[in-house]
Simulated scan of single mutants.
Amino acid sequence: MENYLNRDYCLSLLKEYTQSDSLLKHAFAVESCVKAYARKFGEDENFWGNVALLHDFDYEKYPTAEDHPFKGAEILRAKNFPEDFIQSILSHADYTGVKRETLLQKTLFACDELAGFLTAVAYVRPSKSIDEVEVKSVKKKMKDKAFARAVSREDILKGAEELGIDLDTHIAFCIEAMKQNKGLLGL
């Protein structure tokens, strides 16, 4: 099996560059959502999941827009990851100039900010569980600009639009995907 298809290999690479528990959980949350969409769309779950797992792997060491995700792309090229894998990661940040053209690129972008926001919503529930998160509460929290202010509401809306999926449906789908891995996500 190619390294880029091997989750254990990609996970070890993620952990080599990322120590922060919250960043690791973010990677797992985005992976959960993207893999669920891969299943739904009949795509390669390993490939899509590993792209999602590694989309921010360089962020902790290279957190600036000048470096992230460009340094990660260099590292992956040096490890012979395929260019479509790397371009998918580069496309998740608007400022890279890499257009989102493939279904995977659009899915990764659509799930990235939303997964972070769903985690934040779960954390303010009494049980701190994704099981208590509902679409209506997510949409209510989206209107509260002080809540999880680092999460771009615009990117959440644009992601669902680019994917061609109704926002409520997209939120519900990602909640369900994250419920499947709530132990790993700490939710």
Rank of each mutant, 00 (worst) to 15 (best):
K35Q: 15
K35L: 14
A36H: 14
Y37P: 07
Y37R: 15
A38L: 06
K40V: 12
F41C: 12
G42V: 07
E43Q: 15
E43T: 09
N46P: 06
W48I: 10
G49L: 02
G49N: 04
G49S: 11
G49T: 08
N50D: 03
V51R: 04
D56N: 03
D56M: 04
D58I: 01
Y59G: 00
Y59K: 03
K61F: 05
Y62P: 02
T64E: 09
A65S: 11
A65I: 13
A65Y: 05
A65E: 11
E66F: 06
D67V: 00
D67E: 10
F70M: 01
A73F: 05
A73L: 01
E74A: 01
I75S: 02
I75K: 07
L76W: 06
L76F: 08
R77P: 04
A78E: 13
K79S: 07
E83I: 14
E83R: 11
S88L: 05
S88R: 09
I89S: 10
L90R: 07
L90E: 10
S91R: 13
A93T: 14
Y95K: 12
Y95G: 13
Y95W: 12
G97Y: 07
K99N: 04
R100T: 04
R100I: 08
R100Y: 09
E101V: 11
E101A: 08
E101N: 10
E101G: 04
L103F: 03
T107A: 10
L108V: 06
L108F: 00
F109M: 01
F109G: 01
C111M: 00
C111K: 03
D112R: 00
E113V: 02
E113K: 03
L114N: 03
G116T: 01
F117K: 01
F117W: 02
L118Q: 00
T119C: 01
T119Q: 02
A120N: 01
A120P: 00
A120L: 00
V121I: 03
Y123I: 00
R125W: 02
R125F: 00
R125V: 00
R125H: 06
S127M: 04
K128T: 11
S129V: 03
D131G: 04
D131I: 03
E132W: 04
E132H: 09
E132S: 12
V133D: 01
V135H: 09
V138K: 05
V138A: 08
K140P: 01
K140D: 14
K141Y: 14
K141Q: 15
K141V: 02
M142C: 05
K143M: 13
K143A: 07
D144S: 02
V151Q: 13
V151E: 10
I156D: 11
L157E: 14
K158Q: 14
G159F: 02
E161K: 15
E162V: 11
G164H: 02
D166G: 07
D168I: 05
I171T: 10
A172I: 07
A172W: 10
A172C: 05
F173L: 13
F173C: 08
F173S: 14
I175F: 05
I175G: 08
E176L: 12
A177W: 12
